[in-house]
């Protein structure tokens, strides 16, 4: 484990050569990356980027052992992408990765938004932010929709105070804490432009692309498999038609929309079974979503030409 490795470090300081391949396998980084490949559909650029970062950190760790580098590298990151593209999930894996490599001591993830950091009245913000930082020490602090911290339209907004405390800790306690900022790409860009302190302290920018229709279908199957459901062939076909229609609706949130759609389909399946079942049901009936469960969705009711300008989404 990483804890033991850290304790042994002074002894190993006398090493003169490092076998990177062996390090890669023994540190458990390989296992984390393989799990990432297996459990996350698509996201090829993200996976490539994470491979690059872990290679860099592995080399950096080897350099430190041989006494070539002494500074702790800056590990703060920013994850940009649309909602439902897996930012939080990847952040969780990232925390584990950094823990395996010994860059954070505990490897837990503390996920917060503006509400957790910024107070409501004068003098409320600093203790709140410090409380969160205290909890995140030794792990990864994940700030979702980080741009809400900065509200340029209100110059007395307390967000600025939280930003200053964050920046100070990001700079001075690099050994204790890794900060990951997440949000939409364009708004993050504006946030960084008005807070140059953040941009210069963030070493890695990772961009999360939207999922393709095929990828979303694969995700749907993965979600259902985990919940012990399966799609009837006509349900699969219906879902294939559902995805592009849902995409054009407002408030489309990639994998999260798919998960919600499946939750609704399960609801319809339950009520269908309840109303139509006569006599005992077998396991297959209880775990199969039929085409009707999917086709009952609201998006199929919309006329073809109205898709795209529909109001509200659910």
């Amino acid at each position: 484990m990483a804890g033991e490795a850290a304790r042994e470090e002074p002894v190993e300081a006398a090493e003169t050569a490092v076998d990177l391949r062996r390090e890669f396998e023994e540190s458990g980084v390989k296992a984390v990356l393989e799990e990432l490949d297996r459990t996350l559909v698509g996201l090829a650029p993200v996976k490539r980027r994470i491979r690059e970062i872990s290679a860099l950190l592995l080399v950096e760790r080897a350099r430190r052992r041989l006494g070539l580098a002494h500074e702790a590298p800056s590990l703060h990151m920013s994850f940009t992408g649309n909602p439902g593209t897996g930012k939080t999930t990847v952040a969780l894996r990232m925390a584990e990765l950094l823990h395996r490599l010994g860059y954070v001591r505990r490897g837990h993830l503390v996920s917060v938004t503006r509400d957790d950091l910024v107070g409501q009245y004068i003098g409320h913000t600093a203790p709140k932010t410090k409380e969160v930082l205290k909890k995140a020490m030794g792990g990864v602090l994940f700030i979702d929709e980080a741009y809400y911290l900065y509200r340029p339209e209100n110059e007395r907004d307390y967000g600025q105070e939280a930003i200053e405390i964050l920046l100070q800790v990001m700079e001075n306690q690099r050994d204790d804490l890794v900060v990951i900022l997440a949000g939409y790409a364009d708004r993050m860009e504006r946030f960084f432009a008005s807070n140059p302190g953040f941009r210069s302290r963030i070493a890695h920018h990772v961009d999360f692309p939207d999922y393709g229709d095929g990828e979303l279908l694969a995700i749907a199957e993965l979600i259902l498999e985990r919940q012990g459901y399966r799609l009837a062939p006509e349900a699969r076909a219906a879902l294939e038609r559902y995805i592009p229609r849902r995409r054009t609706q407002p408030h489309f949130a990639n994998a999260r929309s798919i998960r919600n759609a499946l939750d609704r389909a399960r609801l319809r399946q339950a009520s269908r079974l309840f109303e139509t079942a006569e006599g005992p049901l077998d396991a297959a009936a209880l775990s199969t979503l039929s085409g009707g469960d999917i086709l009952a969705s609201r998006v199929f009711g919309l006329p073809e030409e109205r898709i795209g300008d529909g109001e509200g989404g659910s």
Binding site: R105, L133, K134, K135, M137, G138, L177
Partner: peptide, 13 residues
């Protein structure tokens, strides 16, 4: 400090 995972948090305080 019920929910602090790492000593660094306590040392900060």
């Amino acid at each position: 400090m019920f929910d602090v995972a790492d000593a660094a948090g306590v040392m900060l305080e």
